[in-house]
Design a protein around this nucleic acid. Structure first.
Lengths: 223, 223
DNA sequence: GCCAAGCGAGGATATTTTTCCTATATGGCT
DNA sequence: AGCCATATAGGAAAAATATCCTCGCTTGGC
């Protein structure tokens, strides 16, 4: 990902790496020497200023840097004071992220001034599993509005075939006729399943199990 | 190095990778649909047009791509043929999972009898943030029913402070008074933000920016 | 075959970035 | 202490990008 802060931090880091100030870097790149003034990074109205990719290209040219070099700086691979993991949490494991309850999030002491996790008392949660941990996990991309308000066009649903499904779970169902839908499992008996629509404007559906090709639980949804 | 041709080629390749046209990619990114028109890449006077890094950031956000992904495209690498991936093979890189459109999921040839991914034609999506790639990402656990029907008690929301937030995004907001809430960002001006409630039974809210401690975008929600 | 939606060309306009400019501060050198 | 080059803040103007708009073409669904 590319954020405003990261772009400018990376430019600062690139300058520093070449023994330059932001002003010196700009001049070296053939830009106005005040182009990278810190006072110009945020407008008077509070709006962020984003350099053009042309300016970026000129800077990379002038410092004989590759986009990879810059990318590394964007990712902040320079030593950071605050790691991405709060104190007191479990040691970082691949795929784990810090977790907190909503109620706790209202209390003080869990975030720094920028809204990043800080302090102690965080739990961790495993995230969709590495494929090696949950074989067969895949994603489906939502098309259209039939699943509003939960799922919007373009959202990505992560599905885990083989996962246990209980009443109330959100599932993807494929019929033998080739229809694929996402709904909430209301009830499953020995012969039928009842699905509740995610969109009140669409009807609920019931199927004989024999009509169903497969059903899998949705485990994550992009927002 | 970064050249005008490479930038635009990479944007075209990124669009193609996500089954989009340049116009569709621009719209997906929240830009004007004509923003990436080929006719706009070179001015009438012959001058090259370079997109801003903000536009680039929006595109990467919208496609959930990393700068590395983009860099590979800039360098002219083509993504690996994805067809071989679900056929019993693990994904080529940690954290990737197979991706398919809902409409395509209805067709034959993409699943085996048990509902596991099979066959050819799958795309891949990187996700979710490796902590090393998205510093500061954390999770909040929902408590109560105030965010039904989108979020239920016990759901986990993955939040990315520092991520770019656009109108329509689902966000977590913390007020200076210590109240934390998840809503949809309807509008943000220089001084205020308007939030739409996820639950129609709860009121929409507006805040002065000075009342807000921080606001962060929700990127994934457990189901 | 019809129609709606999407795509893209390209012009006009609005907004944003870069350049130009002035002013002040700072550090190195004499 | 004084001079000079450089750095940076920040405003105004110029230049560039993004948005808005119209229009013709293509495509897919009905």
């Amino acid at each position: 990902m590319l954020s405003h802060e990261r772009i400018w931090s990376a430019l600062d880091a690139l300058a520093e790496r070449h023994g330059l100030t932001p002003s010196g870097l700009a001049r070296r790149a053939g830009l106005d020497s005040t182009a990278f003034n810190k006072s110009k990074r945020c407008g008077a109205d509070g709006r962020d200023r984003w350099p053009s990719t042309e300016s970026l290209a000129k800077v990379l040219d002038a410092t004989q840097s590759s986009l990879e070099d810059f990318m590394a700086l964007v990712r902040g691979e320079r030593p950071q004071e605050s790691g991405s993991f709060p104190e007191g949490a479990f040691p970082p494991q691949s795929g784990s992220i810090p977790l907190l309850g909503f109620a706790q999030a209202g209390s003080g002491g869990f975030f720094d001034d920028g809204g990043f996790p800080a302090g102690q008392g965080w739990d961790v949660v495993d995230f969709p599993a590495q494929p090696s941990q949950r074989p067969g996990v895949y994603a489906l991309e939502v098309q259209g509005d039939s699943m509003m308000p939960l799922y919007r066009d373009g959202d990505i649903l992560v599905v885990e075939p083989g996962a246990q499904i209980r009443r109330g779970d959100r599932v993807v169902v494929r019929t033998r006729e080739g229809e694929v839908m996402a709904k909430v499992l209301n009830r499953q008996s020995a012969k039928t399943i009842e699905l509740v629509s995610l969109n009140p404007e669409h009807p609920n559906r019931s199927f004989e199990l024999s009509e169903i090709d497969w059903m899998a639980r949705i485990i994550w949804a992009s927002q």
